[in-house]
Simulated assay, not measured.
Amino acid sequence: MYHATTFLKHMEKGRGSEEGMCECCVECTCCITNIVRMLLCSIHMSRYLRIALLWIYVATAVLTAGLLISIRVLRTNKFQAAPTDMRKVEDHVNNAFCQSLTLNSSDPFEAYTFDGEPVVDPSKFEQFNTSYYSFMMGRTYAHWGFYLLKGSKAVVVSSGSKLISAFIIKGSSNLQAWIDNKGSCDGCYLASHITSPAFTYTLNVSQSDDYYFMYYSTSNNFIYLDAYVYITRTLYDVSSATSHCFYRPNDKPCSLDISLSPHMNVVYHNGDNGPYGRIDMWSTCKSRVWMYVIVFALIPALMAAGVTILFWKYCKDARSQESFPSIFQIHGGGK
């Protein structure tokens, strides 16, 4: 009886949620419909009210869009990298709205700008070896990741227990899928093996991406795990870079000018001394003020001014005050 009652309550709750969503959709549809009718002069109202509503709608849309882009582009972007990583800065960078990009880090790095897509130089390699140690207990996991360019090679050697499994994962989306399902996901990892007595895997990188070495324990006791990673990295050809900056901790951050070209790229290359195999980095975009003025002020103002002229010329005033709809009726679809 308890289960039946609970089921009915969930059904009623779900039905109420669906009805609420339907009502919201209806209200939104009515609002959009009335805005379109207002623009087409099919709703009777005074020209002054029509023009005032037009500018209110335009200002609201412009402020909302500008705020969303500012949050997306201008806020500080904090991220983590691994020693010797060489990769593009892709998040929170917009060539149209960024005048310059400031890069900072807890460790030394070099930064470059390219007018086009940076090209991997197969003749240039960088060696990097590191080791990790961990105590694992219960259904816990630990992972370490590297961004590897095409042509790189990584060998991982680890030992632990038959109750600890190692997984090789390609891509951050597959990493998240593995974490969500604790490894019970089809196609989210390249290989897996228990770490007893030893596990060795050679990764030949055919596509530039993030690669992760994941370890998962099912033991109820503490188990010691050690892992060794030997990486031979390919690097970008920096001979075609348009600018270069070298950063040391406590020095002035690297500031790189961003052109309007959508093909421009910023690349950073870390040193090999990151503590615990992790380097904290952050970037900040300086806004291109004149672009914001043009996109979110000048163009909307000119468009709204043009529509205002059309309203004044072609949308006649209502004949009587009785036919003027209220603001509530305009947004709610009232008659």
Rank of each mutant, 00 (worst) to 15 (best):
C315W: 01
W312C: 02
V58M: 09
A227W: 00
A154L: 08
L54A: 08
T113R: 02
G187M: 03
F246L: 07
N221A: 04
Q127Y: 13
I69W: 10
Y216S: 12
C41R: 10
V73W: 04
Y189N: 05
D317F: 00
Y48V: 13
F97K: 04
G66T: 05
T284I: 13
Y236C: 01
G20S: 15
M86L: 00
I330L: 05
R278C: 00
T64W: 09
D121K: 03
K313F: 11
L256Y: 05
H263C: 06
E23F: 07
L103M: 01
M11N: 14
H10D: 09
S100H: 05
Y201N: 08
V156I: 12
S326I: 06
Y224A: 14
G116C: 07
H193W: 13
W55N: 06
R139N: 15
G171V: 07
L8Q: 12
Y112F: 11
C185Q: 02
A304G: 05
M291Q: 12
S184R: 15
R139M: 08
K153N: 06
L74S: 03
H92P: 02
F128L: 01
Y276M: 03
C31S: 14
H193T: 09
R37D: 11
P197S: 01
N265Y: 07
V156R: 05
Y276I: 03
G160M: 04
Y2M: 15
A305P: 01
H143M: 03
T200E: 12
S17K: 15
A305M: 13
S261R: 10
N270V: 08
Y247R: 04
V62M: 13
K9N: 13
A81H: 10
G183K: 00
V157E: 14
S239W: 00
K182Q: 11
I32N: 07
P249C: 05
F146Y: 02
S259A: 11
G187I: 08
A81K: 02
S123K: 00
N265Q: 13
Y133D: 12
N265W: 03
I56E: 09
V93T: 05
A301I: 11
G116S: 14
P325C: 10
A166E: 09
R50Y: 02
N270F: 02
Y132G: 01
V156W: 04
R75A: 10
S152P: 10
S131K: 04
T29M: 04
T200R: 09
S255C: 11
A59I: 10
G277N: 02
R50V: 11
Y112R: 03
S196N: 04
H244F: 14
E110W: 01
K88R: 12
Q80W: 07
R50S: 02
R288I: 02
R278Y: 07
Y133L: 12
A304K: 07
S192M: 10
L68M: 05
A227K: 01
H92L: 10
I179F: 03
N273D: 06
G14S: 09
T76M: 10
L302Y: 12
D226I: 03
T29R: 03
D209L: 04
S283Y: 08
Q321T: 13
E110L: 06
K170D: 08
V295W: 09
F213N: 01
D237W: 00
P197L: 02
L190I: 12
K162W: 10
